[in-house]
């Protein structure tokens, strides 16, 4: 596999895609973000996220245990912000309440599991997804499996250092960052409605 200019793009890439880090993709510094393996400003990344979500047929949010459970005020605040963002996009929400490899298998209609995220994506024909509140190591596993076996575009809103294996990742994401991103989405939405009305 070519290590020069490796881009983190929608798959299906292969059965066992390489970790993007091993292909030379590095995590962004504070205040920066990653888009398809390249470091960009947070604003550029937010703008691209908005475009991807608004252009998707079946945008879906995958909230993880860090925000699904009300274990702290910050978690609740972040959960509210993610819900508001999903509502703004008109996206479906499919939760990842924990990381148990369910026996005999999960119901892909109503949940996603990091061990077989491809099942939920295939079943619901998800073309763009957002990870939020998923512990980093499970997010990494899931993002790699998704890139390996599906053509879904992955976006990871990470509270820590970001995820190289997502197509777009923001780092240090707090509730206010999610609200800022929601504003970007709403502005783009309004602009596209305005433009389409002008074209009528």
């Amino acid at each position: 596999m070519n290590r020069v200019n490796y881009q983190v793009m929608p798959g299906p890439e292969c059965y066992l895609p390489p970790a993007a880090a091993s292909m030379g993709v590095v995590l962004p510094d504070e205040g920066r973000a990653l888009v398809e393996g390249h470091i960009v400003t947070q604003e550029e990344a937010m703008s691209t996220i908005a475009e991807k979500l608004l252009g998707a047929k079946h945008p879906t949010f995958f909230p993880g245990p860090l925000i699904l459970w009300a274990w702290s005020e910050k978690a609740v605040e972040k959960a509210r912000a993610i819900k508001e963002m999903a509502d703004a996009v008109g996206a479906k929400i499919i939760p990842m309440p924990d990381y148990r490899p369910k026996y005999p298998m999960i119901d892909p209609e109503e949940e996603i599991n990091p061990n077989h995220p491809n099942l939920t994506i295939w079943h619901n024909k998800i073309d763009v997804c957002v990870f939020a509140g998923v512990h980093c190591h499970y997010a990494n596993i899931a993002l790699k499996i998704i890139r390996g076996g599906t053509d879904c575009y992955t976006i990871a809103l990470c509270g820590e250092y970001g995820h190289e294996d997502a197509m777009i990742t923001l780092r240090d994401v707090r509730a206010q960052d999610i609200k800022r991103l929601t504003e970007v989405i709403k502005k783009k939405q309004a602009y596209s409605i305005e433009t389409s009305l002008m074209n009528v």
Partner: peptide
Amino acid sequence: MNKGIIEISPGFEDVMPREYI
């Protein structure tokens, strides 16, 4: 244990699978 860990965050009650509820 922080009992909040077994409370669903507001807004997500209707998307949680039955098992968790």
